[in-house]
Write a protein that binds this DNA or RNA. Structure first.
Length: 1063
DNA sequence: ATGTGCCTTCTTTTT
DNA sequence: GAAGGCACAT
């Protein structure tokens, strides 16, 4: 059956090394579909292993044609009847691959053959032309330059073929002795019988090669230049024949037939050595100009570097545009992603381009059809007018071409910058990558309409640290009747200078601090301000909100709330000159920092640089280490780039304020009162800054909890907290001890832990939560079983039947009814533990959120799925029965080549699975989409949407949840011990304490007897911290109570193992 | 420039 | 066991 297809001819397989991986082959086919390309792997030189794989995988369907799926066929030369051999003349071309020097002469080399010895190379060179040489890495090679190659072509047996050396050599070495040749030389000598393709070293542009009448007996075809599946079809051959080996053969054999309808090509001008010239001098010469200039550069007068075009000019015996008798039409192409990139003014590999590419692929068709013949209005509808205009121009050749020369790439441009700027409004950019719901809005002015089509819900931020609103004296949040307990009130009203407030978990820390700030603001003189310092932007933002709520925007203006770094940055910006820093300095990005490190230690390997940066970071945070030299070197590099890193901000501010009296006096005059949150997390530099600020009657209020100091590893030093009274003479200390968060027994349990089981020294915390909580200890066989247990418990609690009231025998504050998902958190010591948990939650369909994880909707693949579902919304399909989310997603997965392809991309491989699990949970497409799109913003940890939170213990600080699971309560994990790493048991203990004190009503401490970590499975012992809790507070869950059937269904291996262990 | 294979490493993390 | 870095190949 004659058909039209675009063939990417692989004279060998570039994928031959991937024989063990089926994935790669499938990947190849999938891309072939997306591109609209038929992959034709031909030649004896196809790697035998690859052939074997194809044969094994695909049912052979005769005569060298193996069928994979109906759409993709692969003609393979193995198994071709011997009579077919030696009858096709492929003429393939390539660019200069290297430049080598020998005997003082520089020669451009088009092909390189690796050989066992220089002798062999020379012998072969004598036989074939070319040049034996030793590469810089010591390997003997044979280099063939264009002239040699062409001579070989012209002199060779008409029935012979030549194989490109770079194809042959790896094949030979892969075969080794099994090839039947004793030496590569013998092998090479035998080539004339088998050789298949030839590289002339001429331009890759057939139009130019047609100018050589000596090539008339050859058929010019395009060889694949695809280095990876997604580069398929950058060059291709258009066939109108049978899709079979014999079909292709006939097409090539009979120049008169239309079998070979033409070729698709790059713009050859893009090549680095197209024209002649001097890169340094900026001279780019057409070969004719070179001849006029007698081969010399008009700028420097030295001989120019001669490019491939010159060679064509030299050999051509026909004028430009001439057609040989086997001439076939050709199209010059630009890959779609480059067209889109040019339209958007961004790189072809950018996310924007990727997103638009998939959209087009889904809406219009495969890449070649988009490039060659799809209706432009359909392209415009999806990608905007600019892209469709770009495609039109490429089709008609209306592009600006600047040929490459002397190693400089040529530049092919579709739009001038001016045009692009002028037309920008017409591009349907979907700026932030949000999918367009508006398929009927053809000329949609981009961002706005696209955005409007999306439900963009602002999420309500519920503050996590919301103490005492349940049980403490109820009062409206007013300035006059703040709901403060006695201790809190005393702290707020304390009139002395410095004050340290020790505030345990759930004692209303932020609440108290905010009120003290408000109080101070009310007393502020006209030209004075209050400074409130936090560690994180999030904390600063929350504090600002709460202050604003209490005292309104006017007073709010006299309170400066910011992080340490924000404050220092402000100081430095205002006093750049005094600080000796250029006024226009930037904050160093991660890249800036590594660049500075690279300049500081140019020879050091990256790992060493990273290590140095770490040491420097610690040293600058005030931790021990003698790295001063490195610090100075690194800082000098930062300074040279006119950037300040985060540590610099603090250091430079401290330096300025300590030496410049005017600056410090101004700051002290402005900020008479300084308040610091989370004071236990302070480091040396921050402490130094505070010491500077707090003088001449400026007062400092610090609040924090030494039992929650968990950031020692990054330089925080709890001793600053402990030595507060010494550092700031005259300071008072107050303690907030009424806990409004946790049930009494949970509070007691956490007290046992922090006091190392020594009940007497537990922090004095009085429970004001009028309910009884429950502490459950549970041990499973493995981490998988642990995850299943957690999910199971969670399901029970969400179920609505109040297990809580049954278990505790008490029904208290009315919140013991069925929980919602936002009421749960699962905490763990290391992020690596999230894996099994995520899997278990996915299986169960429970909505969850892993802290710090990118929201689903940010993945291009998910965007694509969402766009598809919007476009194929039920409304549009009439009263389609198909409102079912899972079914719609299934259709997407089947119909869209994008989905099929991305599924193979292992980076996002799990995404479709995840989507499907989510879809199964939603009745309609609409609710499914809402669910996905709602989670646009990051910072999921404190946004209490209705999902279970999966967090590290560190990330849980400051949050609270009715039900908390702490997974992996095993010795070695809680506390975390790693061989060769320093170990701070006290800090680990505090960390566990932080985790425990997040729980309001229920706390589960789970562990696994066997755990796989770092690829090793080890037997574990229970956490010693758990042992510090008095037994009478613990409840042990019995495994037998588990729903065996259900558990076995969802987790077959480990769970059964758990159940069937000898009791 | 881009793939590939081998090696190392593998807490926690804000600005 | 997975991921990232690095050296090396084309």
């Amino acid at each position: 059956m004659v058909m039209k297809y675009y063939a990417d001819l692989h004279i060998h397989s570039k994928y031959s090394r991937a024989t063990s991986s089926q994935l790669d082959l499938e990947h190849l086919w999938l891309w072939a579909q997306i591109k609209g390309i038929t992959v034709v792997a031909t030649g004896d030189c196809v790697h035998p292993g690859w052939l074997a794989e194809i044969k094994q995988k695909l049912a052979p369907c005769g005569n060298g044609l193996f069928e994979l799926k109906p759409e993709y066929c692969c003609a393979v030369a193995a198994g071709i009847p011997p009579s077919c051999k030696g009858t096709v003349r492929f003429l393939l071309s390539t660019e200069i691959s290297s430049i080598y020097k020998r005997d003082g002469a520089v020669r451009k080399v088009h092909n390189v053959v690796y050989l066992p010895s220089l002798d062999a190379a020379d012998k072969l060179a004598a036989k074939l032309g070319g040049m034996g040489n030793i590469r810089s890495d010591g390997r003997p090679i044979l280099g063939l330059d264009s002239r040699d190659l062409l001579d070989i072509v012209l002199s060779c047996d008409p029935d012979a073929f030549l194989i490109p050396a770079h194809v042959w050599t790896p094949w030979f070495s892969a075969l080794g002795s099994k090839s039947g040749f004793d030496s590569i030389e013998e092998c090479f000598g035998d080539l004339t019988r088998y050789v298949y393709a030839l590289e002339t070293g001429l331009s890759s542009d057939p139009a130019m090669n047609w100018r050589l009448s000596s090539l008339d007996s050859f058929v010019l075809v395009s060889n694949s230049d695809a280095h990876s599946p997604n580069k398929l079809g950058r060059e291709a051959n258009i066939f109108e024949t049978d899709l079979s080996y014999c079909g292709i053969l006939d097409a090539l054999r009979n120049p008169g037939s239309r079998g070979l309808a033409g070729t698709l090509e790059f713009f050859p001008e893009e090549g680095k050595y197209h024209f002649d010239g001097h890169r340094k001098c900026g001279t780019r010469l057409h070969p004719r100009e070179t001849i006029k200039n007698k081969g010399l550069c008009p700028v420097c007068g030295k001989p120019v570097t001669v490019g491939v075009m010159a060679r064509v000019e030299e050999l051509a015996d026909r004028p430009d545009g001439a057609k040989g008798k086997r001439w076939r039409p050709y199209h010059s192409m630009i890959p779609l992603s480059e067209i889109i990139g040019d339209c958007l003014g961004v790189g072809p590999a950018s996310q924007k381009v990727e997103s638009l590419y998939w959209r087009l692929a889904g809406a219009v068709g495969n890449e070649l059809s988009i490039l060659l013949d799809a209706p432009l209005d359909r392209i415009e509808k999806t990608a905007g007018a600019l892209v469709s205009e770009g495609v039109r121009r490429v089709r008609s050749g209306e592009v600006s071409v600047k040929a490459g020369y002397d190693g400089e790439y040529g530049i092919i441009k579709i739009f001038s910058d001016k045009e692009r700027a002028g037309k920008k409004g017409q591009v349907n950019l979907f700026g932030d990558g949000a999918p367009a719901g508006a398929s009927q809005a053809p000329k949609a002015d981009s961002e706005d309409s696209a955005a409007a089509a999306l439900p963009r819900h602002k999420k309500k931020v519920r503050t996590a640290d919301s103490p005492h609103n349940q049980n403490a004296a109820p009062a409206s949040a007013g300035t006059h009747a703040p709901n403060l307990n006695k201790a809190q009130l005393a702290a707020v009203n304390y009139g002395g200078s410095h004050l340290l407030i020790i505030a345990g978990p759930g004692t209303g820390k932020t609440h108290t601090l905010v009120h003290r700030i408000v109080k101070a603001a009310a007393r502020c003189a006209a030209n004075e301000k209050i400074l409130a310092v936090t560690f994180t932007n999030k904390a600063a933002e929350e504090m600002r909100e709460r202050i604003c709520k209490l005292i309104g925007p006017e007073l709010h203006a006299i309170v400066t709330v910011g992080t340490f770094h924000q404050f220092c940055l402000g100081i430095l910006r205002a006093n750049a000159a005094e600080a000796g820093i250029p006024a226009d300095f930037r904050i160093a990005s991660d890249d800036d920092c590594s660049a500075a490190a690279a300049r500081a230690w140019p020879t050091a390997p990256a790992a060493e640089r990273r290590a140095k940066l770490e040491v420097i970071g610690r040293a600058r945070a005030g931790m021990p280490g003698e790295a001063q030299e490195d610090v100075d070197l690194y800082k000098a590099q930062l300074r040279a780039a006119n950037v300040l890193d985060f540590d610099d901000l603090l250091e430079e501010a401290v330096r300025l304020l300590s030496k410049n009296a005017m600056a410090i006096n101004q700051v002290r005059a402005t900020y008479r009162s300084v308040l610091v949150d989370e004071f236990q997390d302070i480091n040396a530099a921050q402490h130094a800054l505070l010491t500077l600020l707090v003088k001449d009657g400026v007062s400092l209020t610090a609040i924090g909890d030494p039992n929650q100091a968990i950031y020692g590893f990054r330089g925080s030093d709890i001793r600053f907290f402990e030595q507060f009274e010494a550092s700031f003479p005259g300071a008072a200390t107050m303690v907030l001890s009424e806990n409004y968060r946790s049930a009494a027994n949970l509070l007691e349990a956490s007290g046992h832990v922090i006091a190392s089981g020594n009940t007497d020294s537990a922090p004095l915390l009085v429970a004001r939560f009028l309910g009884n909580g429950r502490l459950t200890i549970h041990e499973t066989a493995t981490e998988k079983a642990e995850a299943e247990y957690i999910v199971h418990q969670l399901e029970k609690l969400v179920g609505g039947t109040s297990m809580f009231s049954h278990d505790s025998g008490r029904l208290d504050s009315g919140d013991t009814d069925g929980k919602s998902f936002g009421d749960f958190a699962v905490l763990y010591r290391t992020n690596a533990q999230s894996g099994p948990l995520v899997e278990a939650f996915e299986r169960s369909g429970i909505p969850f959120q892993v802290s710090g994880e990118k929201p689903l909707a940010q993945y291009p693949f998910v965007k694509e799925a969402v766009a598809y579902l919007l476009e194929h919304a039920p409304g549009e399909l009439g009263e389609s029965s198909d409102t079912d989310a899972a079914a719609a997603l299934g259709r997407f997965a089947q119909e869209s080549p994008v989905a099929a392809m991305l599924e193979k991309d292992d980076r996002v491989g799990g995404l479709l699975d995840r989507l499907q699990h989510i879809a199964a949970f939603h009745a309609s497409v609409q609710s499914f989409l809402d669910y996905i799109l709602l989670q646009q913003k990051e910072e999921p940890a404190d946004i209490r949407v209705e999902r279970v939170s999966l967090l590290t213990l560190h990330a849980s600080k400051g949050l609270e949840f009715p039900v908390v699971f702490i997974a992996g309560c095993e010795d070695g994990l809680v506390p975390l011990k790693r061989e060769g790493k320093h170990f701070d048991p006290a800090e680990e203990r505090r960390l566990f304490y932080v985790g425990m004190t997040r729980a309001k009503e229920r706390l589960y401490l789970t562990s696994a007897r066997r755990r796989t970590m770092y690829g090793k499975t080890i037997d574990t012992r229970p956490s010693p911290f758990v042992a510090d809790i008095k037994e009478e507070l613990k409840t042990y869950e019995k495994t037998a109570a588990m729903n065996v059937k259900k558990a076995a269904e969802s987790e077959q291996t480990d769970f059964l193992g758990d159940l069937f262990l000898p009791q």
